[in-house]
Amino acid sequence: MLNRIYIIVGVLAIMVLAGAFIAPRFIQWSDYRDRMEELATGVLGADVSIRGNISFSLLPTPRLEFSDVVVGDIESPAATVQAVEAEFALVDFLRDNYTVTALTLNQPQVELVLDESGFFSSGIDIAGGGAGVVLSQARITNGRVRLTDLRSEEVYAAERVDGDFRLASFTGPFQFQGFADYGERRYDVRFSTGPGDAEGISRLSASLREVANAYSVSAEGLLTAGMAPKFDGTLTYRQAPPGVEAADDIRGDLVLESKVTASTDRAVLSGFTLMPDENRAATRLTGAASVQFGTRNSFDAVVSGGVLHCRPAMPLKSPASCLMNSCAC
């Protein structure tokens, strides 16, 4: 008798699992398109349109796939995504808490605008949104980010953006590690932020390295988010010297270190130290610089000091010989 009960329970369990696998295939998920668009609109603070196909499977993990996503106005969208694949934690999903365990965005394109006053505009308002949404692992493939500066009518575009990012909430912390093209060069891009406080200030750590190791830039400090973001921290620029054949011609990297305060209008390098050859720390320049952005881009720099040590070209035997010998740096 007990064996029969076990058999009946086992058959019922198999039927339930089979139904969980098979039933989603017979559901017209396109009928839920409006509901999905409504949820995404509430998170991003902008209209979201899903114009492509939608498919969903519950087991072994909840998996949602849809394509041709438009964020914002259809004619001039703030962002578009060719295809989206999302996997959710099963237990959290059943509790209506959408913890995304794996997300892939294929060919996303983001449009950013700096208006005439230097304020950022993206058409997306995530302030206070994103409750219950966590991205523990996400992947971007063949993305694009374009910034249009209406002050100078310049357009800056990062192409072929590939990488991984994590997002605890839309207010941070978040991380990104990947690659992007700008112009004809490929760059290794990494940045991360801590959680933002009540004033929207968080700690930022970022680095940009040219893949061929020609140069790199790193920055650490405090970032104030918003329509007029500001950064206050330190900046390090490192540039590799050209290759040489003779050992005597080997030089160290050019290194620039400075405190920096930056906004959408201006970047100020206060008290920089420039070493043309890091192997010769005594040969350095100090000063300050200012870069202005906007209608007319400009650059001003003042070299306020320098240290230069010389060595004698040959040993000096007497004070009189100093007058006849030269110094070599």
Rank of each mutant, 00 (worst) to 15 (best):
V113F: 05
L114Y: 14
L114I: 12
L114H: 09
D115V: 05
D115W: 10
D115P: 01
D115N: 14
D115E: 08
E116R: 06
E116N: 03
E116M: 06
E116A: 09
G118R: 05
G118Q: 05
F119Y: 14
F119T: 10
F120K: 04
F120M: 13
F120A: 11
S121W: 14
S121A: 12
D125L: 04
D125A: 07
D125V: 01
A127P: 03
G128P: 14
G128Q: 08
G129A: 12
G130N: 02
G130Q: 04
A131N: 11
V134T: 07
V134H: 01
L135Y: 10
L135C: 03
S136I: 02
S136T: 08
Q137V: 00
A138H: 06
R139S: 10
R139L: 15
R139Y: 15
R139T: 15
R139W: 15
I140W: 07
I140S: 03
T141M: 11
N142M: 09
G143A: 07
R144P: 01
R144A: 13
R144L: 15
V145N: 00
V145G: 00
R146Y: 12
R146F: 12
R146W: 13
R146I: 12
T148R: 01
L150F: 09
L150M: 08
R151H: 08
E153V: 06
E154V: 05
E154I: 03
E154A: 11
V155Y: 01
V155W: 06
V155C: 03
A157K: 09
A158W: 15
E159M: 08
E159D: 07
V161S: 02
V161A: 05
D162V: 00
D164A: 03
F165G: 04
F165H: 06
A168N: 08
A168T: 08
S169Y: 02
S169C: 03
S169V: 03
S169E: 02
